[in-house]
Simulated assay, not measured.
Amino acid sequence: MGNDPDNFSCRSGFSSPACLASEIAPDYFDPLAVDPGQARDVARWRKSERARLREARKVLATAERKEIANALMAGLRRVVDDRLQRTEQPVVSFYWPIQDEPDLRPLMNELCETGVDIALPLVETRAAPLVFRRWTPQTRMVRGHWNIPVPPSDAPIVMPDLVLAPLVGWDSDGYRLGYGGGYFDRTLAAVTRKPIAVGIGFQSSKLATIYPQPHDIALDLILTEQGVQVTRAS
């Protein structure tokens, strides 16, 4: 299969599990928020910002999109080398790109060849933490929740040392504007051994704030085409 993106077994353009959540549950908000009215206001604002930011990235030219993806992959190689250099048999969870997200699949192949285990996140139970299953270039993908290509049910479950989260928006405090399903935050809250959480997105998607709510969990790093923008990990 190599590193040629044209050789990937699935060319449908699908991605990580939570990407359609705002369309399925556009009024999603955390009922445990301190003020339900304020939480609803934030949910409406986030829905509007998601639509604006997703529309903005749609208009990127193909050449610019590829340049951004290459810059992100170069930055991510450095992050993996720096953060996981002392980890024996490291596991990195990627995402399968859809809806104009940066396509990092060539790096999935490259890291596999260097001995890094690659995982992909799956929604196997609604409103529950994600499950991470091992992926290799030979994995025969199947259609998962929301029709997203995922590894099959017999692929081994693994726990990532480093997990990537696609960003719709982000702020300088390390908070992520995602797709509205809450799966990523729910997963980070549930794991006993928290992985290094890295947000992947466009520099142009930076926001002054996402108005974080009680359920939001800040990421350890945020990486854009301009390099690491936020570092919270020790």
Rank of each mutant, 00 (worst) to 15 (best):
R54Q: 04
R65K: 10
D35K: 13
K66H: 07
W146F: 13
P97R: 11
R57W: 00
A33T: 14
R126H: 13
L111I: 00
L60D: 06
P129D: 01
I148R: 05
R54T: 06
L162N: 02
L130P: 01
R65I: 14
I118W: 01
L76C: 05
Q138C: 12
V142G: 00
R46G: 11
P137I: 13
R50Q: 06
N109W: 12
K58I: 04
D30Q: 06
R134L: 13
R133T: 06
L72H: 08
R52F: 04
R44H: 07
L76F: 12
P97L: 07
L53K: 01
R65P: 02
C112T: 11
E67W: 03
P156L: 10
A56M: 03
R46Q: 10
A128I: 08
E67P: 07
A155V: 04
T87N: 05
T62K: 11
T136A: 06
Q85R: 12
A71E: 15
V150P: 00
G115S: 05
V131E: 00
R65H: 11
A39C: 00
P36D: 03
A63P: 01
E110R: 12
D154V: 01
M73G: 12
L104H: 04
T87S: 07
Y28K: 06
D41E: 05
N147C: 10
E88M: 13
L104F: 07
L120H: 00
G115P: 05
E124I: 11
Q99I: 11
A63Q: 02
L107V: 09
R143F: 10
P156D: 07
A119Y: 14
V42K: 00
C112V: 08
L72F: 12
G144K: 15
I68P: 02
D27Y: 15
L84K: 06
I68G: 06
R50C: 01
G75T: 13
R77K: 14
E113M: 08
R77H: 14
V142W: 03
V42C: 00
V79C: 15
D100H: 12
W45V: 07
P31V: 09
P151H: 04
L72Q: 09
L130F: 12
D154H: 10
A69P: 09
R44S: 13
G115Y: 02
A71F: 14
P152D: 08
E67M: 11
W45L: 13
L107D: 03
I68Q: 08
L32W: 09
A51D: 08
I98M: 06
L120K: 03
L60F: 14
A69D: 14
P137R: 14
P26K: 09
E124D: 02
T125S: 07
R77E: 13
P26F: 12
V42Q: 00
V80D: 10
A56S: 03
A128M: 05
D161G: 08
E101K: 12
D35G: 09
L107M: 08
R140F: 13
A51V: 12
N147F: 02
R50W: 05
Q89G: 10
E49Y: 00
Y95C: 03
A56Q: 04
A71I: 15
P121K: 06
V92A: 12
G37T: 14
N109E: 10
D103H: 06
T62P: 00
L60Y: 07
A71K: 15
E49P: 00
P26M: 07
D117Y: 03
Q85C: 12
G37A: 15
